[in-house]
Design a protein around this nucleic acid. Sequence first.
DNA 1: ACCTAGATTCACT
DNA 2: GTGAATCTAGGTT
Length: 216
Amino acid sequence: MALERSTLMESAVDLGPELLGSLISHTTEEGTVTIRLTELEAYVGNGVDPGSHAHRGKTKRNATMFGEPGHLYAYFTYGMHVCGNIVCAPAEQPSGLLMRGGEVVEGIDIARRRRATAKSDRDLARGPGRLAVALGIQLADNGSDLFAAPFELREGQKPQSVLSGPRTGVSGLGGSDLYPWRFWIEGDRTVSPYKRHPRSRVAVSRSRGSRRPRPP
DNA sequence: ACCTAGATTCACT
DNA sequence: GTGAATCTAGGTT
């Protein structure tokens, strides 16, 4: 079954494991870059998730999270980084998947140009800010429809094994780091290294022969 | 108007 | 592993 907007009509928490392995493309004058998503983090804004930008209701900044699913929520952070989320769930139910890591599978020369400091291709989109640069996402792209040009979101090959663990970067406030809403493909080298969590656990039954899961 | 925290990255050691 | 660089939104004066 194809990945389409209706696929995204549920919570990011449930969609996270499902969307790993999906392909996101962005076309500019330079050409098309496609990234296979290997790491995603779910955020919801219904008041139970203090780590979410939408925790305290709709603002000008987070309005995209309250819109139709399948759009891009892009925001600026740490004074220098843009991060991109795939908006999930029906409108008015803020829910999104932060794209934290991926593998460039098309347009690698374009991505290398944009990420000139990357030491290897592995690092081109390893980390949320890096992924945004490699894909060519800017703050102005906030609100863009991911199912229309210049973007494209489609299904990729299902990963064999998916793990989950506490999210990265959320302050421990409100115990928000207790939600195991970070999802990644087991063993994939393009999963972000930042603040890796010592303890991870199996998220989806898709994983076979679960030995002790290895953090990314 | 001012202040602070933040869904981070890079260059070093 | 650590520190610096950087800017925007949101809350507070």
